[in-house]
Design a protein around this nucleic acid. Sequence first.
DNA 1: TTGACTCAACATCCTTTGCTACAA
DNA 2: TTGTAGGTTTCCATGTTGAGTCA
Length: 462
Amino acid sequence: MTVRLSYENGTIRVDAGGSAGADGTGTDRIPPLPGVEDDPRSGTARAPAYRYAAIRRALSVAGVSVEDRVLADRPSGGDDDLALSTDYDLREYQADALAAWHDADDRGVLELPTGAGKTVIAIRAMVDLGVPTLVVVPTIDLLDQWERELDTEFDVPIGRFGGGEQRQEPITVSTYDSAYLKAEDVGDDFAFVVFDEVHHLGGEGYQDIARLLAAPARLGLTATFERPDGGHETVAELVGERVYALDVDDLAGDHLAPYDIRRMEVELTPEERERYEAKQGTFVGYLRESGITFTSGEDYRKLVMRSGNDPRAREALLAKSAAREIMMNAERKIERLADLLDRHREDRVIVFTAHTELVYRLSERFLIPAITAETGAKERREILERFRDGTYSRVVAANVLDEGVDVPDANVAVVLSGSGSEREFTQRLGRVLRPKDDGGRAILYELVSAETAEERVAGRRR
DNA sequence: TTGACTCAACATCCTTTGCTACAA
DNA sequence: TTGTAGGTTTCCATGTTGAGTCA
């Protein structure tokens, strides 16, 4: 018996070759295959495309002969294997990471800190496999960076999905958004897919990108694999398990700058304290009265749902939000920031906050260029360029510089306020860890309002 | 080509206690 | 007596991004 595999709209179609089975599906003699189910509408059996590699393996184990048309139906007829080469030499840990990935059948996630050279490993993997490859990235900025990098490294045209262009080549870079829109059409055109910042793939909609692609070889890159919502388990199913992990401390002092984290507590002013306690009291009081207890973030979502038709729940959430704003934007943090900026007059400083309004206040008060979501692409480029060439020695930003932006190196970071997200914290720290020419240490200051919920928030992210 | 706009998607959003009704 | 679920079929607010549309 021969089983025929082909790609159809994001699925792998499975037909028993030659004669159809008695039930008309043509699948009655096929051994059980991972993810394959009967599809009565088309009278065949099929599985989500991401199961392709597992199906191949199962058929091989069962000793079934296979007529595989999945990747062969590409425009080029499958004859487009690429002769790629690279001049990059991998560092020892990069080579170890790549070897671990190959050992896992060319699947899996590498968790390495920002600045560890994840791109280089991916390029080497592309050279090793020499097959059509799709690279998926979260932002236009990263799209540009990858395109430049691949263009310099390889002697083949680089395709691009995103930022207003839809140009496909054997090696193509795409945003997650464009990949989501095109995955069904191009799902059988690539034998290898690289997901940069792969934690994004845990998002509800983005998961479909990986499901619709047939590419048997899959590489995920991230600095922070685990997601608070457990989405990394889905990522592991779609891309492969985490096969190699290093954290910042494994590389600090060697390939990354040595660093110190200094937490500084500031007191709320009496007026802030009064407002904070009132707002926080409204929130906690509501929880107590309505018998709501928190064991996880899930419970918070339930409260949010409840607020849709319970005015008191809504009032409690608004009070919580106001309390958060008071502790995060405390007046004495700004005074402390003034001291720090004074102390680090000779250094390159990035100030991070959680609220845009505070960014503009700090920008006015200290005459520092500001970057928020409202800052246009052109202006943002100019500010970062001047920060890079030394015209500016400090920048204040909301959450925009956390990820996916090529930020010039700094050696001091001041986190005025942030979420409890471990990812956000790791990314912010990563902004000061590029090795210094003089071998100097990087410093991250974390300003926390004493005796507020912020102490717990700050504890959660570390 | 650029810029302004809208829209959709994603991420974070959290407390220190122990009620009430119902099923097994 | 003990164990368990708890509004049903999302979304209080803010920040950020990419895609698409239109002038």
